[in-house]
């Protein structure tokens, strides 16, 4: 697997607290091309700790690209240069000896920086709480095969449901829009028969909370889809807009 080690210069964002002024700290590091970028941060932190200095705060958990906890802007791109790849899945063999990297947190008005590379993405949960569910109580479900769902519909719903809630779409968007995230959630339910009864209430409730939490509007640059580690399609935004429009027609409100 491993080739020979490479030397990199890493400029990493440090910020003590939400109010503190941030800055880039520079590290020179020899690394294995098999290491992931988070393992490089681990190594830097081990060295910092050994020297009695504060390690770099960053979030990560599964390191398999599915939990959505990690998320760094690497050389200006959320999750770095590889398409459809979460930060934890970015390996150093994708860089060359002598490269310089700039590593920053996901920046957005709606994502307050808590410390170094950690941001607050709780706005996403608030949107989900507003309507990202089907209302029924445990125990009342009919047999799983009572309602047939075509393979095509199930696959499309899963395409939308694959969103890992990392926030790269928001960080990529010049407006800090969360419409790819919300669109994916709305679409999953809108495509399935189980989601139909609450379809139009759901989209209005979720969009309302999205707006309240300082996420911006969509101006169709598609940067979100380009940076999404799961390749969630902007078609989901179109679906959400259509449902939102329909909802307004059906309910006759202008809110």
């Amino acid at each position: 697997m491993s080739e020979k080690n490479i030397n990199l210069t890493l400029n990493i964002w440090r910020q003590e607290s939400p109010e503190a002024k941030g800055y880039f700290e520079k590290f020179e590091k020899e690394i294995s091309p098999d290491a992931s970028i988070l393992e490089v941060l681990d190594e830097i932190n081990n060295r910092l700790e050994f020297e009695g200095k504060e390690p770099i705060a960053f979030e990560s958990d599964c390191r398999e690209g599915i939990c959505g906890a990690c998320g760094l802007v690497i050389n200006g791109q959320p999750h770095g240069p590889l398409p459809k790849t979460a930060t934890c899945q970015l390996h150093m063999r994708n860089f060359k000896d002598g490269d310089t990297l700039y590593i920053e947190p996901f920046r957005a008005t709606a994502f307050k920086i808590l410390k170094d590379l950690i941001v607050d993405r709780s706005g996403f949960d608030k949107i989900q709480v507003a309507g990202g569910f089907v209302s029924f109580n445990t125990g009342s479900a009919p047999d799983g095969n009572v309602i047939l769902i075509s393979k095509e519909m199930a696959d499309q719903a899963l395409d939308a449901a694959e969103c890992i809630g990392c926030g790269a779409c928001v960080a990529a968007c010049k407006n800090s829009s969360a419409m790819l995230f919300v669109g994916a959630k709305v679409s999953q339910f809108a495509l399935l028969p189980q989601g139909q009864p609450e379809r139009y209430e759901r989209v209005q409730a979720m969009v309302k909370v999205m707006d309240e939490n300082l996420f911006g509007s969509c101006t169709n640059t598609y940067a979100c889809e380009a940076e999404c580690p799961k390749g969630i399609s902007v078609l989901n935004i179109a679906r959400m807009n259509r449902d939102y429009f329909m909802a307004k027609l059906k309910t006759g409100t202008n809110e």
Binding site: V134, F136, G139, S140, I147, A157, Q188, L192, G195
Partner: peptide, 9 residues
């Protein structure tokens, strides 16, 4: 059954 009803695809 429960998961299908929740909209698990």
């Amino acid at each position: 059954d429960q998961c299908v009803a929740q909209g698990v695809p």
